[in-house]
Write a protein that binds this DNA or RNA. Structure first.
Lengths: 178, 178
DNA sequence: TGATTTAAAGACCGTTTGGTCTATATTTCC
DNA sequence: GGAAATATAGACCAAACGGTCTTTAAATCA
């Protein structure tokens, strides 16, 4: 997974995968079929990890506003410095392959749908608890937050070291909560 | 430019470029040097177009809030439907090459810096005119808006046709203006 | 231990990659 | 019209691509 994450699909050659998996050419093809299948497995694992994290942070049994704060803070941390410059496998794949690979497109579209749904759900719970500012629509706000965190990953690819974005994330959430 | 935009750097082969430029192999190399140089020219043109548009929309002589509204609306339009699925050359390049290509990194980092500066400037002018909501910091808000529009481009790569985001963009801006 | 399965190493395959070069047209200019 | 410059088509190159296959070594098990 790591090598696709760092280099992208096309830029990852067989020798890179052999080094990363410590498998021989024959074993790799016996185990995974071909490069594309192996990539799909890597992408699935990456997405699973992300969804798992989402389910923890936005757990319905937790305080929704705290969860949203943790969700945003997690993205800020993961896009700071060297982590940020590594980028995001989902976004890189979306831009590189989504238009020409239906398997990839389906997975990524679903991931964004799930994330938006989890965030919208947390916002709905916050609204029900009277924690949201007047006139905030959970569906719109969820889309805004998802776009914000994904945009964060994009600009962090080239951001200079030491750029702090926690303040922006806090400022954004503060606009929605009471 | 178009072929890099549609396919990305690695996935664009020489024959694609010959077809797109209607040049022969020899002429193309005489005119541009090599694939990487040609790509840099395409990227520069794409960025120039974007900066030009930015300068029009956020022109200091115009009403800043109107400009910001036009800026957001423009991104929403350009990420809807087929346009959206084509993606964005800057983001695709950031994810594909920025980590390993200093020329590319410099251009993209600068582009994001310029965009954020233009947006921050418009927000500052709006604040001076008393048009901003209480407690809104132009610098933080600018980063939020930039991340939002870039995130929009990402999720639009795989979004189903007909998904409307104008409402989210309006909702976001409405949180910052009075 | 000896037979059998499993994995490693890497030669090998056809194709495609980015890039060069030559021979042939096509302009351009006087 | 004829010489000089320019652009074309496409042969050609070495290297790298994804993928297969054979040969050798290691592990497994009775």
């Amino acid at each position: 997974m790591g090598v696709f994450w760092s280099r992208g699909y096309h830029a990852t050659a067989l020798p890179d995968l052999l080094r990363a998996t410590k498998l021989s050419r024959g074993s790799l093809y016996a185990a995974f079929g071909d490069k594309h299948s192996l990539f799909l497995r890597a992408l699935d694992r990456y997405i699973d990890d992300a969804v798992t994290r989402l389910n923890v942070e936005l757990d319905p049994r937790k305080e929704p506003v705290d969860g949203l704060r943790a969700y945003l803070a997690g993205y800020v941390d993961r896009t700071s410095g060297a982590h940020g410059r590594r980028g995001c496998l989902v976004i890189a794949t979306a831009m590189e392959l989504a238009g020409r690979d239906a398997d990839v497109n389906r997975r990524i579209a679903n991931f964004f749908k799930v994330m938006e749904a989890r965030v919208a759900d947390a916002l709905s719970r916050a609204k029900a608890a009277g924690k949201l500012a007047d006139g905030v629509d959970p569906a719109n706000a969820a889309r805004i937050l998802v776009c914000f965190v994904e945009g964060l990953r994009v600009i962090s690819k080239t951001a200079a070291a030491g750029v702090i974005t926690h303040a922006a994330a806090d400022a954004l959430l503060d606009r929605f909560i009471r």
